[in-house]
Amino acid sequence: MADLLPASGGTRLDQGAYIDDFGRRFWRTGGSGFWKLERMQGYDEGDFASWRALVRGDWEESLRLIEELRPEFEEYYGKIAASGFALHRVRIVERPLVPYIQWELNLLRLKREYGERVSVVDAVEVAPYEDRGPLPELCVLGSEAVYVLDYTSSGVPDGAVRHTDPAVVRQARELVQRLHSDGKDLESYFRREVAGLAAPRGK
């Protein structure tokens, strides 16, 4: 992990600047694809309706609201496909699954139906990379940029550090690609580990 990203450098962006910068670059991601690494076991999803239902303990409503996203996802992922690139995500999970992860895997399962390529990796499998702490939250936009995402202690998005050095971007992308290749396909993982779980309580 020590040689994945430089100890200094990059450009620190607050949340607003990160959203703007990401939005400008995303649609020119290109054939190398979008690669995301999720390591934390929970985030504050703000006013996202399905997550809010989870927080208040209404699991059935939370799942219903996920299903309502189908038209939005069909349009969004169709636009991505037309732009010539694909979305890949590595979701690292710890056991036992916390409510957030159980909820997110249901959401990601729907995204997978519309083209997002999701791979699940057990946390024990990334231990060799974490001798100095957990892997960072990463978003890699093709060969153009990698964002190291920051969050507050309560999981609220708090900006990012952007790196555009080609060697740094390549190293980050290759790490996420390697984990993605080594992980389990979401659908098979979901059927085995998630489908039979009782409704979670809380977030």
Rank of each mutant, 00 (worst) to 15 (best):
A2I: 12
A17I: 05
A17R: 15
R39P: 01
F26A: 00
R39W: 03
P6S: 06
D21M: 09
T11I: 13
G33K: 06
S32P: 05
E45H: 10
R39D: 01
F26W: 06
F26E: 00
G23Y: 01
A7Q: 14
G9C: 09
D44T: 03
D47Y: 06
F22P: 02
S8M: 06
G9M: 07
D20S: 14
G16M: 04
F22W: 14
P6A: 04
R12Q: 11
G9N: 10
E38P: 04
G10D: 07
Q41S: 12
R12C: 03
D44N: 11
D14L: 09
G46Q: 11
E38D: 11
D3Y: 12
R24K: 15
A2W: 11
T11Y: 08
F34D: 01
R28K: 12
R12H: 11
L13T: 05
W27C: 04
F22L: 13
K36L: 00
D21R: 15
R12T: 08
Q15V: 01
G10W: 03
Y43H: 09
L4Q: 12
Y18Q: 06
A17F: 08
R24T: 13
R25L: 15
L5K: 07
W27S: 09
F26K: 01
T29N: 05
T11C: 09
G23M: 00
S8H: 14
Y43L: 12
A7E: 15
G30A: 02
F34L: 14
Y43N: 03
